[in-house]
Design a protein around this nucleic acid. Sequence first.
DNA 1: TCCTAAATATGATTTTTATCATATTATATT
DNA 2: AATATAATATGATAAAAATCATATTTAGGA
Lengths: 143, 143
Amino acid sequence: MLSNSSKYAIKAVLFLALNSSEKNKVMAKDISQPINVPQAYIAKLLQELVKEKIVSSVRGAKGGFYLDDKNLNHSIMSIVNVIDGEKRLNSCMMSLKKCNEEKPCPLHSILSTSRSQILNSLKSKTIKDLVEEVELGNAFLPL
Amino acid sequence: MLSNSSKYAIKAVLFLALNSSEKNKVMAKDISQPINVPQAYIAKLLQELVKEKIVSSVRGAKGGFYLDDKNLNHSIMSIVNVIDGEKRLNSCMMSLKKCNEEKPCPLHSILSTSRSQILNSLKSKTIKDLVEEVELGNAFLPL
DNA sequence: TCCTAAATATGATTTTTATCATATTATATT
DNA sequence: AATATAATATGATAAAAATCATATTTAGGA
Ligand code: FES
Ligand code: FES
């Protein structure tokens, strides 16, 4: 479904959303442990997100990663797109050249509605939305 | 979502369902081209399916692969399970240790219903079901 | 019984994904 | 300005997935 890297990235972003701010930056090494992803690995992923302006950062002493209000309004899909690329989730499930509505493969008929729901959720839900779920106690973030 | 291998395997099985029978076996090399998967690759995948009795085969002259009535009643999920293993589709989408209904991650809340629908379809739909869709002209099998 | 055809077992190679490591650059503090 | 700190750029290594290759086994036909 999602790559490991995307999953890690989402965890890290949510962690930042909950535990950082412009005046309270968090270093890679302090993200690594609570989300259970190796430091060098999460650092690299965060760098890609910074490049796409989904995460903010400043380097040097007192530096670190954080999310500002603009960052918080990005969709979950935008994270996945940066890390996994656009086509991972919408290619044909039977590996036809392309997923084709006019000439759907047999799996298309039975799976594409559910898949669209997933894609739509990922597109419409923002980081902020998920954070709210956690704050309301409807969702959890262990490891 | 599904691995390449699983997608290839499903294509091959559907091709066999439509073009083979006990008295009309099809060789790996004659499956390879129409489904657009390299011969050595599809042969290996089919061997795994034979081992799990999802596909039938006989070797030697006049041999080849085919599906019998029993084979046709296997679910699509059974193919995926043989090729990808059981946990590819139901692990936590944020890579928590396990997908946990009691302490769901933020993605769980928004995605798990759709994912369950996908899993249920894959479990309930048999090879025969999909073949019927193709025969009715509701689904297609190019490349 | 031989010969040929085809799957099977096995494993090698390539590509992609995941993971680790480090030298460089930018920032704050002294 | 000098130093320490932390991200960044870059690339190396490891593991997994995808792909390719081949010797062995089994079945049919001459
Ligand atoms: S998923 Fe195969 S055509 Fe859409
Ligand atoms: S998908 Fe994360 S807990 Fe179910």
